[in-house]
Design a protein around this nucleic acid. Structure first.
Lengths: 151, 151
DNA sequence: TATAACGCTTACGTTAACGTCAAGTGGGGA
DNA sequence: TCCCCACTTGACGTTAACGTAAGCGTTATA
């Protein structure tokens, strides 16, 4: 039983905690997103590594590529760059923000549609029999869906 | 010059309007997401096709795979299924909604961080000289970033 | 002592979503 | 008529992000 309270983790501990495979963690190291120390051959992950992993997974969930995440995690290259270099990053950050805001709008729309679909399905499940009334409702739903399509 | 007011589109017209390639549209047809009619060999896209494309691209932006989008666009398979089949879809829809809500939280967090980064870079660009004060600010930012990492 | 259990590296395989030729078709101006 | 241009259908190539398998060393437990 490893001393999991001493703020270091093995590869499989981290893998399980974040529901990823050990292979993925080794892959992230290959790509320069994680740099665990070693004890002999075995990787030893620190609290910082763990925090970086958290950011990596969050970045992934919002659509960043691993390469983009790597660049963003590398604060050094931002804080030590020239003002001109800084401008490049500013532009990229702002563009990213716009993309994320669009994505947010899309997500809100998608949630709405999915919830509408759920409501309809629940209503249909409530009446157990395919009555004439249900059929007309179904047709109404289809009409609505079609209207959304036409918009 | 095609009659673009008559509510039909050529493949390249649609491609340009939505900033995708013709290849992508043919690919979507191959996968069953679009079913344009034909005039001879050439594809003719209707207003419905155009609306479906809009939904396809939106679905993509929120992280659905083309296969998932195809299934969701195929309302027939939902409205005509058995109540049991309906239950499957209900479950899938609800799960999707949860994923989307998590994604929205992630996006909000990412936007916040990016905006913080922008603000810092702007502040740094304002002072043109790398003064001692600026350096201390930089260190402050790094400390903040590190604190976020450690959380 | 043996036998899992865990970890390592190396290397090839896989999937999605197209990109990129190549070679052919069909219509409309000069 | 000729030629160009947009469109077509294959067919193979590409990239990201791992999966999977082989083969081997190390540690923990029975």
């Amino acid at each position: 039983m490893p001393q999991s309270a001493s703020s270091t983790w093995t590869i499989s501990e981290l893998a399980e905690e974040f529901s990823v495979t050990a292979r993925a963690l080794r892959f992230y190291e290959d790509k320069g997103l994680l740099t665990p120390t070693r004890h002999g051959q075995a990787r030893v992950f620190s609290a910082t590594d763990r925090a970086r992993l958290r950011l990596i997974l969050r970045g992934k969930r919002v659509g960043f590529s691993l390469e983009e995440i790597r660049e963003m995690l590398d604060l050094e290259s931002i804080t030590s760059g020239s003002p001109q270099h800084l401008g490049v990053w500013l532009t990229r950050f702002r563009a990213r923000i716009e993309v994320l805001k669009q994505q947010r709008r899309d997500i809100d729309g998608a949630i709405e549609e999915l919830e509408t679909g759920c409501a309809w399905m629940e209503a249909r499940q409530a009446d157990l029999e395919p009555s004439a009334e249900l059929k007309s409702r179904a047709r109404a739903f289809e009409a609505l869906a079609r209207a959304r399509l036409e918009h």
